[in-house]
Amino acid sequence: MIGYLNIILRLTIWFLLTGNFSIANIIIGVCVALLLPRSYTAPGALQDWLRVLWEVIVAIPQAYLEAFEIIFRPHNQEEVVIEQVKPRRSPGLIFLDIFLITFTPKTIVLKYHEQGWYEVHRVQRRKRT
């Protein structure tokens, strides 16, 4: 089951990059998804995949809310924080985690450290003192 999720993730990325749903592009995308080397690390559990897919669905309205908040209430303070990667993450799940962090307008992943850390840049409202 996890193998199918990896192929679907690869196809989704392919279609996002190409923006073309012609028959030839679909065939090329399937070939690319199947020919890309597979990771032989511990596969992510189906529950982890479903949780991340739910987080993607929730992130869409959150991104709109953050965008309007930035427009109407400027955010002048910036910080770079280090966040730890959740344990036992496959490369596909790490990619989706980075996508989720970067998808919202207030945060972006600057760097992923192989030791299990993300450097995340955040903007926030200046706290009144």
Score class of each variant (00 low, 15 high):
residue 84 Q to W: 11
residue 75 H to P: 00
residue 112 Y to Q: 10
residue 39 S to N: 14
residue 109 V to C: 12
residue 2 I to W: 04
residue 128 R to G: 02
residue 83 E to W: 15
residue 26 I to L: 12
residue 39 S to D: 12
residue 107 T to Q: 11
residue 20 N to D: 07
residue 7 I to Y: 00
residue 4 Y to T: 08
residue 48 D to N: 11
residue 16 L to D: 01
residue 122 R to T: 07
residue 75 H to L: 02
residue 17 L to A: 12
residue 4 Y to D: 06
residue 103 F to R: 06
residue 81 V to F: 10
residue 111 K to D: 04
residue 78 E to D: 12
residue 89 R to I: 00
residue 6 N to Q: 09
residue 32 V to I: 04
residue 80 V to A: 06
residue 40 Y to I: 05
residue 40 Y to E: 03
residue 119 E to I: 12
residue 1 M to I: 08
residue 97 D to T: 15
residue 33 A to G: 06
residue 114 E to I: 12
residue 125 R to H: 05
residue 10 R to C: 04
residue 52 V to T: 11
residue 62 Q to F: 12
residue 43 P to H: 14
residue 76 N to H: 13
residue 103 F to L: 10
residue 31 C to N: 13
residue 70 I to K: 15
residue 90 S to H: 11
residue 6 N to L: 05
residue 87 P to E: 04
residue 55 E to S: 02
residue 106 K to D: 07
residue 69 E to N: 13
residue 111 K to C: 04
residue 121 H to C: 05
residue 114 E to T: 13
residue 69 E to M: 06
residue 16 L to N: 14
residue 127 K to Y: 06
residue 73 R to L: 00
residue 92 G to A: 12
residue 63 A to W: 04
residue 19 G to S: 03
residue 4 Y to G: 10
residue 126 R to L: 11
residue 54 W to Y: 13
residue 4 Y to Q: 10
residue 126 R to K: 11
residue 75 H to N: 02
residue 59 A to E: 00
residue 27 I to N: 15
